[in-house]
Amino acid sequence: MINLAEAVKLKSILAKKVQELVSELHRSAFVTVEKGQAPKTSNRAMKVIEAELAQVRLDVRTLDRLVCMKKKVYAWVMVKLQCFMKLLCTSQMITANLL
């Protein structure tokens, strides 16, 4: 299980990876060629970069969904805890009045 602090750090790493891949995609998409010179191609094909970018973006969305679910569960537990505490206080007051 991953805690919220680790999730924030992981999201930062994934965001940086997205920026790097987008930058690499832009560098691969355009080339300046001087007259009489052969164009220099990048090391990786654009399809490979696009596929990796799609996977990283999917990972970011999955992480966001997990963090959101964790926050919703935490909020639900807090509401239930507050209800339980009110019920407990009420029952204690009733018991004290009966004695």
Results as ranks from 00 to 15, higher is better:
Leu14Val: 01
Leu14Glu: 11
Ala15Lys: 12
Lys16Arg: 04
Lys17Pro: 04
Val18Gly: 11
Val18Trp: 08
Gln19Ile: 01
Glu20Asp: 15
Glu20Thr: 00
Leu21Met: 09
Leu21Gln: 07
Leu25Trp: 02
Leu25Gln: 05
Leu25His: 03
Leu25Thr: 07
His26Lys: 04
Arg27Gly: 11
Ala29Asp: 06
Ala29Arg: 15
Phe30His: 06
Phe30Thr: 10
Phe30Ser: 05
Val31Ala: 13
Thr32Arg: 09
Thr32Gly: 02
Val33Asp: 14
Val33Phe: 01
Glu34Pro: 03
Lys35Glu: 11
Lys35Ile: 07
Gly36Thr: 06
Gly36Arg: 08
Gly36Tyr: 07
Gln37Leu: 03
Gln37Thr: 06
Ala38Leu: 15
Ala38Phe: 14
Pro39Ser: 09
Pro39Phe: 13
Pro39Gln: 10
Pro39Val: 05
Thr41Ser: 14
Ser42Met: 14
Asn43Ser: 01
Arg44Thr: 08
Ala45Arg: 10
Met46Lys: 08
Val48Arg: 08
Val48Glu: 15
Glu50Gln: 15
Glu50Gly: 05
Glu50Ile: 03
Ala51Arg: 09
Glu52Lys: 03
Leu53Trp: 10
Leu53Gly: 06
Gln55Phe: 01
Gln55Arg: 07
Val56Asn: 06
Val56Thr: 04
Arg57Ser: 06
Arg57Glu: 13
Leu58Ile: 02
Arg61Val: 00
Arg61Lys: 10
Leu63Asn: 02
Leu63Arg: 08
Asp64Asn: 11
Arg65Gln: 00
Leu66Thr: 01
Val67Pro: 05
Val67Met: 04
Val67Arg: 03
Cys68Gly: 00
Cys68Lys: 02
Met69Ile: 13
Met69Ala: 14
Lys70Tyr: 00
Lys71Val: 00
Lys71Ser: 06
Lys71Arg: 09
Lys72Tyr: 02
Lys72Ile: 09
Lys72Ser: 07
Val73Gln: 06
Tyr74Val: 03
Ala75His: 11
Trp76Met: 09
Val77His: 11
Val77Leu: 10
Met78Val: 01
Met78Gly: 05
Met78Cys: 01
Met78Asp: 14
Val79Phe: 12
Val79Tyr: 12
Val79Leu: 13
Val79Arg: 14
Lys80Glu: 10
